[in-house]
Write a protein that binds this DNA or RNA. Structure first.
Ligand code: NAD
Ligand code: NAD
Lengths: 211, 211
DNA sequence: TTTGTAAAGTGAATTAAATCACATAAAGGG
DNA sequence: CCCTTTATGTGATTTAATTCACTTTACAAA
């Protein structure tokens, strides 16, 4: 295959495929066809084959994909053949729930540091052992802990300033939970999570389908 | 305009526009052009005009959009000219953080009931006054409280069974936080929220841009 | 070894979405 | 009252993503 632009949607689907493949592997299944995998993921079989074809040939014609190998290959494509250290900014309601959550570590994401601006929280120790640092120590701690991803769980009003601090500290990947549109330079990649947009979409569907 | 299929992406953008418009309104601005709004939302101006054109004509040529009116119109399009009662299923880490969060009510989403299966939690009262019901009382409570949306915040292993119960209870809108692909009938609309997919996307970008 | 079959890989066709570019309409000033 | 400015609304165009349909290849059974 030549040099195609890879659709972002394809990247996101790779994550979905991994989830399904890991589940199948747990069930002891060794090999799967694009057709069966597609059914499980709710997509078109050709879609799976094309998504994978952007990166190489991973299947065996007439047989299917060896699950163990495919998981490893996709993880390599996505950069998940390593762990990623994450900084949590804003240890409130949501931030502490995320840190407490055990699922991230299973996928190689490690909360390696936490930050807040509230004097009552600074210095406190979280259940998992992390100490809450002052946001002004961000740059120092990011270096020390080799952090590459920042999660913004502050109020929306602080989101842009926190993003700026992250970028100065050399963090180029941001997961933003605040309902704010943050501006970052080219080098930085931001993903936004906004539950209310999802709820709005549900509300739209319920309204238009006569419920 | 005739009868175009409306892209789902357009619906999601309407939510984004509302957020921006509400912010502008707070700043005392009355009227805005598609160009300025587009800048703020990080999209193409023609995109905004086209998205709105699916539903009618809301602007004034040569002038722009009256912000107050446009907010009202978009809310009506999305079905946000009312409140929506929500049931939280699974009052754990994440579920309780969501219930505690004040932002949903501002957008007209009300947590009207909470459910769990853990005997230690059933009957307990949450900070906001809600009592945690047993999941088996779902159908009854859904009727009593006029609930139309269910939020699944249980472990992935319980997600499908909870979804089934929601549908039997007559809930046709589901926001699913569990990392599971749930199957529902045509009449039901599901939105999935999976943070690890977003993290995977960040990892991919960091890996491929030589960081 | 040969042959039948299953399923990956892929160029072509289709479908969908985003953007352009211009005709159109409102507002304001001379 | 007309002319200029401005920004919407939209058909045409471009770009992107998905799906189809066929070719290729590996394997297994005879
Ligand atoms: N909690 C939820 O369920 C939920 C759901 C959707 C969206 N969100 C969004 O996530 C964000 C966090 O929500 P929350 O409920 O945890 O809020 P919260 O108020 O409980 O926590 C916010 C934390 O950020 C800290 N903070 C404020 N400014 C800061 C700064 N400049 N640097 C570092 N820390 C700072 C505060 O001290 C506080 O501890 C908000 O933007 C909210 O809109 C939350
Ligand atoms: N906490 C997070 O930050 C986070 C992040 C991403 C995804 N998730 C996902 O959200 C879900 C919930 O996460 P959590 O951290 O809150 O887990 P949790 O274990 O803290 O809470 C789950 C709750 O669901 C209840 N439950 C289990 N089976 C049930 C059933 N059949 N009916 C009703 N209630 C039931 C449990 O009793 C428990 O109270 C999980 O699927 C998790 O993977 C959580």
């Amino acid at each position: 295959m030549k040099f195609p632009k890879i659709p972002m949607a394809a990247i996101n689907r790779l994550s979905i495929y991994i989830r399904a493949l890991e589940e199948l592997e747990e069930q002891g299944i060794k090999v799967i066809s694009s057709e069966r995998l597609a059914k499980q993921c709710g997509v078109n079989p050709a879609q799976i084959r094309k998504d994978l074809a952007y990166f190489g040939e991973f299947g065996v014609r007439g047989v299917g994909y060896r699950i163990e190998d495919l998981i490893r290959e996709i993880k390599e494509i996505l950069g998940l053949d390593r762990t990623w250290n994450i900084a949590m900014i804003g240890v409130g309601n949501l931030g502490s729930a995320l840190i407490r959550h055990g699922n991230f570590i299973k996928h190689g994401y490690v909360f390696a540091a936490a930050f807040d601006i509230d004097p009552h929280k600074i210095g406190k120790r979280l259940p998992n052992g992390l100490i809450i640092h002052h946001i002004d120590d961000l740059e120092k701690v990011v270096k020390e802990c080799d952090i590459h991803i920042g999660v913004i769980a502050t109020p929306a009003s602080a989101a842009q300033s926190v993003a700026n601090q992250l970028i100065i500290a050399g963090v180029n990947g941001i997961l933003n939970f605040a309902p704010a549109q943050i501006q970052v330079p080219e080098c930085c990649h931001v993903e936004n999570v906004d539950f209310t947009i999802k709820l709005d979409s549900i509300a739209y569907h319920l309204s238009t389908s006569g419920t």
